[in-house]
Nucleic acid binder design. Structure first.
Length: 876
RNA sequence: GGGCGCUUAGCUCAGUUGGUUCAGAGCACUUGGUUUACACCCAAGGGGUCGGGGGUUCGAAUCCCUCAGCGCCCACCA
């Protein structure tokens, strides 16, 4: 017999994981069964497993394992994402440590370093995932920069370009000075930051008072090309058409008028810097202003910054303020909180910047994706509350900036054949590009060396938005058997933070390239937070080490812990005690097995009525729970499914069934009970397997010698069958009588070993599960009497039945009387409220019959109860 | 600034269409219990005027209004 304890959990896990791999239980190829596929949200190739992953991946594994048991051809495709900005930033940082500057390397050399890094750390996260028990088809592992994946991306780019949906534009974009690339709007997070509102005086021509403007960014005065006032602001009526001098720069700039300016804000005057603010750019275009770009790529100032050239913008901000103060033109500096754009990846403050970028037109593309989620519900978001967020974003969707000034990623397949920016062709390969370039330039002598490929790479999401299609090679090879079999996938499990980055775009690409949804359900998890509700972060140090958790508690326990309180869309307040609870549950199951497995069997022993009834009841209870669990799964209420299984095993199976059939110490068990309870235990293991794969497989295999085909992982999910609801109710009546007896013992301070005689008063029929009650209540006998006996003892009520237990000389009459009077008072009060309701004519005429009948029953029951209590009181 | 959502026991949350079984679960807590599968355990028990106020209704945790607090998404206010 094997032992499943904390000391051996990891060896048991390793044993079964290897067993599943060896026997190809995770592998899937198309066959005649219906497919059930999930594509993993590819983690960053250089990432490490954190709690968010654990939650997502546990959910996916639970879904895929259950589907596998349900007879689907289950296929979970794993993989990783090249995460261009994040990975490139890490590689640049590592090179820096080695004294190498990225700018001194050629593109090819840099990519070599990046691939070295990827091979060194890449896939580490996938290894960690295995520790959790993830049953992915590892032979299918994909990486977004694999050759076939990249080819798909390039093919899609060319296709969209040829459809006229991709264009190149000179636009204000989000510039990350740290990574030195642009970002899409979704990659910019706005945060409230304390700052200052500087009031600066600009000298006016002539003798008039200087004009005071308010700005949060004094360093941008070098890029000022106008001052804007509101045309109807009476304070500035006399300034229309005038010019002012920019301090320090000493340039003269015009005063323009525009209703964009808010009279109430600041001083009512706005300095206009078209190169560095999106609003100013709009104003600039409207008023034909000069554009002066004052920054270098790393957000230091360029020559326009005069003596501040090469200094960082934040250093310059302070220095400029000081200089302005020295000049006597810094009128005021007030504290001011404003929103600042931060790079999602590098956390650098974003600089709005004008530059040439590639864009994808989104409006038309988004249409089918809007319908699919909001109208036809072909794609369901779980929970549905995210539909609103989705709608809002999709209906206001903006063109997607898909180019990044990085090297790690798919290089944009645009080839320039002259110095003019409009002289380019888009092609899947250099050869094809040359051909096209010769045609477009009408120069047949053009050589491949005359072509220059665009330096930029594509946004990482431009590869991952194809993920559900490209992992099955459905872009390059749209008719292949795999894509037609596995696509569309069933469930996608991910966080709502990437609803727009990724989920929405996958739905868009699904309809564009397959004319079909990529998945039917999107299960959106919440964020994993600590128990104080704070986000988990490295800085706070509140993020538990995922692998250490698995090591300390066991993978099953961690999975259970995660499922115990994580409804879809709700944040999970994680605490290690959840894992402890999971571990306690593992221990409980293990011990139940030890009990069953340790019994000595005697086939000559009688199959008692108690055992027979308890087994029959549990079979019903199991069915009831199974129905509930299936329903929870269908509604993606995974934690409810988990909790229902938990209670079934712990309360019903262990506390009731096993306690009921357990033979006295040292006694053997009858053969029939033994076989039946083992059968029921096996069914329990099936239910638990998706949640706790290792422990269940261990016990399953320990019970009997099994062939690989008989492994639990590929066994069948229990069949739903009809069950006797009435029997379950009768059993519950019995358990509440047992509860009454136990409570009685406790109140009367009687030991649990002391046998008691139970008397049922005035009941015309036998109490349910009488022999069970006798055994569990530790009774010497049960008899039925007409009225409360006159001798000393105590009484209690359960299920509207009155019970009496004789206790010679052990009863405190006064205490008993007070208790009964309390009960009587409550029953009378209850009766009054029911009768009040029943005497209300409008209630009687309006309420449905069922409700009315119930109230009448309540009244009758209350009357009966009062009578019983009064009798007992009289007997005292 | 616009939109959406939340507020139920000490904690985390269930509560379908207002009405049988509606005030629940798990954990935590209190009390009693260890040669008898499991103290990582067993048994019993306490605990909430369902955020405040108003309204609709015979009847409201559930529908409407309002106030307060919290959260999320979107947005170009210097």
């Amino acid at each position: 017999m094997s032992i499943f304890s904390k000391f051996e959990a990891s060896t048991v896990e390793k044993k079964w994981y290897e067993y599943w791999l060896e026997n190809k239980h995770f592998a899937s190829t198309p066959d005649e069964r219906p497919a059930y596929s999930i594509v993993i949200p590819p983690p960053n190739v250089t990432g490490i497993l954190h709690m968010g992953h654990m939650l997502n991946l546990s959910l996916q594994d639970i879904l895929i394992r259950r589907a596998r048991m349900q007879g689907y051809n289950a296929c979970w495709v794993p993989g990783t994402d090249h995460a261009s900005i994040a990975t490139e930033a890490k590689v640049v940082a590592r090179l820096k440590e080695q004294g190498i500057d990225k700018n001194d390397l050629s593109r090819e050399d840099f990519l070599k370093h990046a691939w070295d890094w990827t091979e060194e750390y890449g896939g580490l996260i996938l290894e960690q995932l295995k520790k959790l028990g993830a049953s992915c088809d590892w032979d299918r592992t994909k990486f977004t920069l694999d050759e076939d994946m990249s080819e798909s991306v390039i093919q899609v780019f060319v296709d969209l370009f040829n459809k006229g949906l991709i264009y190149r534009g000179y636009r204000m974009v989000n510039w990350d000075p740290e990574a030195q690339t642009t970002l899409s709007d979704e990659e910019v997070i706005f945060e409230e930051k304390p700052g200052f509102l500087y009031h600066i005086a600009y000298e006016l021509d002539g003798v008039k008072e200087p004009l005071v403007i308010a700005t949060t960014r004094p360093e941008t005065i070098f890029g000022d090309t106008a001052i804007c006032i509101h045309p109807e602001d009476p304070r500035f009526e006399h300034l229309k058409g005038e010019k002012v001098k920019v301090p320090i720069a000493n340039r003269w700039i015009p005063i323009i008028e525009d209703t964009y300016v808010e009279i109430e804000f600041g001083t009512g005057c706005l300095k206009v810097t078209p190169a560095h603010d999106i609003n100013d750019k709009v104003l600039g275009e409207k008023h034909n202003l000069e554009v002066i770009d004052i920054f270098n790529a790393d957000a230091t100032l360029n020559a326009h910054g005069l003596h501040y050239e090469s200094q960082d913008r934040f250093v310059v901000r302070k220095a400029v303020a000081k200089e302005l103060d020295g000049l006597g033109v810094l009128i005021k500096k007030e504290e001011y909180t404003h929103k600042v754009g931060i790079s999602e990846r590098t956390k650098a403050v974003i600089e709005p910047r004008l530059s040439d970028q590639w864009f994808l037109k989104m409006e038309k593309l988004a249409e089918p994706a809007i319908k699919a989620v909001l109208d036809s519900e072909e794609v369901a978001l779980v929970p549905a509350k995210f539909k609103n967020t989705y709608r809002h974003w999709m209906e206001n969707i903006r063109d997607w900036n898909i180019s990044r000034q990085l090297w790690w990623g798919q290089q944009i397949p645009a080839y320039y054949f002259s110095n003019k920016p409009e002289d380019f062709v888009v092609a899947p390969s250099a050869e094809k590009a040359l051909e096209l370039a010769r045609m477009k330039s009408e120069n047949p002598d053009l050589k491949e060396t005359d072509l220059r490929q665009d330096n930029d790479v594509l946004d990482t999401w431009f590869s991952s938005w194809l993920w559900p299609i490209s992992v099955f090679d459905g872009i390059r090879n749209p008719e292949n058997a795999e894509i037609n079999y596995y696509y569309p996938t069933q469930d996608l499990v991910t966080g709502p933070d990437i609803l727009f980055f990724w989920v929405a775009r996958m739905i868009i690409s699904g309809y564009e390239f397959r004319n079909e949804k990529p998945f039917s359900k999107v299960y959106l998890t919440g964020l994993v937070r600590d128990k104080q509700g704070r986000k988990m972060s490295k800085q706070l140090g509140n993020s538990p080490d995922a692998l250490k958790l698995i090591h300390d508690f066991g993978a099953d326990a961690v999975r259970v812990g995660l499922m115990l309180s994580s409804a879809a869309g709700n944040d999970l307040l994680f605490d290690e005690s959840l894992c402890q609870q999971g571990k306690n549950f593992s221990n409980k199951i293990w011990n139940a097995y030890r009990l069953i497995d340790g019994w000595e069997v005697d086939d000559t022993r009688e199959h008692s009525l108690v055992n027979k009834e308890a087994l029959l009841w549990y079979a019903q209870k199991f069915q009831q729970s199974l129905t509930l669990i299936n329903d929870h799964f269908e509604k993606y209420r995974i934690s409810d499914a988990m909790m229902t299984s938990y209670k079934l095993i712990w309360d019903d199976f262990c506390s009731w069934l096993l306690e009921a059939i357990k033979p006295a110490y040292g006694d053997p068990i009858d053969g029939q009970t033994y076989r039946e309870v083992r059968g029921l235990f096996q069914e329990n293991l099936k239910l638990l397997h998706p949640f706790m794969p290792f422990l269940t497989e261990e016990l399953w295999q320990d019970m009997e010698t099994r062939t690989p085909e008989e492994a639990l992982i590929v066994s069948s999910w229990p069949q739903v069958d009809e069950f006797d609801k009435k029997l379950i109710e009768r059993f519950e009546e019995a358990t509440s009588i047992i509860g009454g007896i136990r409570n009685f013992r406790k109140e009367k301070e009687l030991g649990y070993k002391e046998s008691l005689a139970l008397q049922v008063i005035g009941s015309s029929e036998e109490i349910p599960f009488e022999s069970l009650i006798q055994k569990m209540g530790q009774l010497s006998g049960v008899n039925y009497i007409d009225s409360a006996p006159e001798k000393s003892g105590g009484s209690f009520r359960a299920n509207n039945l009155e019970f009496f237990i004789p206790l010679e000389g052990k009863i405190d009459f006064e205490k008993e009387r007070l208790k009964l009077e309390e009960e009587l008072k409550y029953a009378k009060g209850f009766l009054v409220s029911v009768q009040k309701k029943l005497s209300n004519e409008r209630f009687v005429s309006n309420a449905p019959d069922l409700v009315l009948a119930n109230e009448r029953k309540k009244e009758a029951d209350a009357l009966e109860k009062i009578e019983v209590i009064e009798k007992s009181l009289a007997a005292l």
